[in-house]
Design a protein around this nucleic acid. Sequence first.
DNA 1: AAACCATATCAACAGTTATTTATATATTTA
DNA 2: TAAATATATAAATAACTGTTGATATGGTTT
Lengths: 107, 107
Amino acid sequence: MSKPVCNLQENFTDAAFLAKALSDVNRLRILCCLGRKEKSVNQIAGALELSQPLVSHHLKELRRVFLVKVERRGPFIFYTLADQKIPAVMKAFSALAETLLSQKQSF
Amino acid sequence: MSKPVCNLQENFTDAAFLAKALSDVNRLRILCCLGRKEKSVNQIAGALELSQPLVSHHLKELRRVFLVKVERRGPFIFYTLADQKIPAVMKAFSALAETLLSQKQSF
DNA sequence: AAACCATATCAACAGTTATTTATATATTTA
DNA sequence: TAAATATATAAATAACTGTTGATATGGTTT
C-alpha cells in the first residue's frame, strides 16, 4: 500500500489561512523587518514608512496566524517572529515566486 | 560589508502575488490534485466535487502566476504543475501552517 | 491628577474575490 | 450541417480586505 502524495479530502484550511496572511506586500515587509531582532510597532512603522494604525492592523493579521509573538515592556510592545523556520520558508517561497513570475514581462 | 538579511526597500510584489494564489482552499486542492499527473478540467471538477465554472475560474488564477501549464489535446484541456519545486514548497508551507496553527484550538 | 507617549480600535470607503447561474466558444462525431 | 461534449466567459451577488483619519486605551512621568 503506497502512501498517496495527497489526500483529496485533505483540509487545506490552515495552509490557505497562512498563505492569506503572506499575501500582502506590507506584511511580508514587516516579517522581513522582524527577521533579525524584535521591534516595536513604531520602529516597524518608521523603518517601512507606514502609518502606525496600518502597521497595527497588519500585526493583528500576523498574530491571527501565530507568525509573530508579542511582548509588552513598559509602554512599548515588541513583536518577534514566532518560529525560526519562518525566514527559510519565506526564502523558498520568494525563490519560487521569482522563478515562476520571471516569465511575466517577457514577450 | 556583511550581506543584509533583507532589504527593506525590497519589492515583495511577486511573493505576495504567489501567496494570494495559494490563499484559497480550492486552489490548493487543485494543485494537490495535479501533483501526480496532468488532468483535464472535468477530471479535476469530478475529483474535487466542484462545479466546472468554478474550477475554470481557479485555474485561470493559477495560470496568472504560472503555477500551471496548459495543453489542449482534442476537446480536452490538460493542466499540469508548471514547476517541479511546487510540491516541495507546498509541503514546507503546510508543515509551517500546521506547526503555527496547532495553537489555535488549545485553550 | 494631568500631560504625554505608544499602541489598539473604530468607522468609512474603495477595491477585490469566491461562488452561482446562464451563456458563449471550440472540438469532435454523426 | 447538426448534435453533443469540453471548456471558458459573463453577469450578479455577497463577503472580505487594505488604507486612511479619528479616537480610545493603557503605561509613564511630572
